[in-house]
Design a protein around this nucleic acid. Structure first.
Lengths: 155, 155
DNA sequence: GCACTGAGTAAACCTACTTGACTCACATGT
DNA sequence: ACATGTGAGTCAAGTAGGTTTACTCAGTGC
């Protein structure tokens, strides 16, 4: 189930990036788990980020996440049932309903943000994060042009 | 479905890493697709890398990939049906069967390797890849200790 | 009024796994 | 010699997280 880390230097850049993402996201999820958020996956965090502030309709959320509106609707159903979001009347009327965050979700966003910043502070002791970020930003700009595709697993 | 790339500098490191991985893997897959390998996903590439050389039993493959032996068996079934691997007698006998690559799979590995190296050459014109790799290696070593967990989506 | 558009929803299906239960070839202790 | 265990492989059913297809229904624009 595990490979030795000795091979890291010979690894192709894509897979090195993948392991970095995997490791950092994994540690983030473990810390959130330890903070009592074991029931929320990264996908839920993306929903919270997308809904932060004014909220979105389920269809807007779907487009933002790069999934069908049915899939977005299911996510919202689940998060509503668990008290993290609620559907309120949409100012523009129609069949539209605005999905907005509850206090519980905003609290989670704050905890997640603090967790990430703490993690980043720890990593900054061993890694020149400025260089790393700059390289990554250039890479993404080079490959993605003007628009970022949604962050979803390619498998 | 898309976000503006302007926000990249403010993005948390995890998500920046995620977008980098997404973008590079996406471009890799697109090029392999264009080269006639539209039927092979990255997961198949991992199988090929794991089996390269002497091959592995389905159970060893499962452990390497971090999935159950049933899942590994299904992957092998599919790849065998499509002519990329074959099961041969295992020297150690028992119920063991060694899964090894066919010529088609080795050809794919070569094309994939060349594709990655070409991509990396192109990126090297805009990005100091040495710095980037070094930062990533340190990050993975710091977070994963001595052993790399298998590369799978955390979602 | 009446057709059109777009949000939301319902149901069936699909893919890539998992868990659980089993078979079978060989190794091992008595 | 023989029972018993161990580990590889397989069969079947269940699950998570989506998709496609088909529909309802509120407001819009002639």
């Amino acid at each position: 189930m595990c490979q030795d880390v000795g091979m890291l230097d010979d690894l192709e850049l894509v897979f090195l990036l993948g392991h970095g993402y995997n490791a950092l996201l994994g540690e983030f999820v473990r810390r959130l788990d330890a903070a009592g958020y074991g029931d929320l996956r990264p996908a839920h965090g993306f929903v919270f980020q997308a809904l932060w502030g004014p909220g979105k309709t389920a269809s807007e959320l779907a487009e933002h996440l790069g999934v069908t509106k049915q899939a977005a609707g299911q996510l919202v159903d689940e998060l509503e049932r668990r008290g993290y979001v609620k559907r309120v009347a949409h100012p523009a009327g129609g069949r539209r309903r605005l999905v907005v965050l509850t206090e519980a979700a905003e609290r989670h966003l704050r905890v997640a943000g603090e967790t990430l910043h703490q993690l980043e502070r720890e990593l900054a002791e061993a890694i020149p994060l400025g260089e790393l970020r700059e390289g990554l930003v250039t890479l993404v700009r080079t490959l993605s042009g003007d628009h970022l595709p949604p962050l979803r697993p390619i498998w």
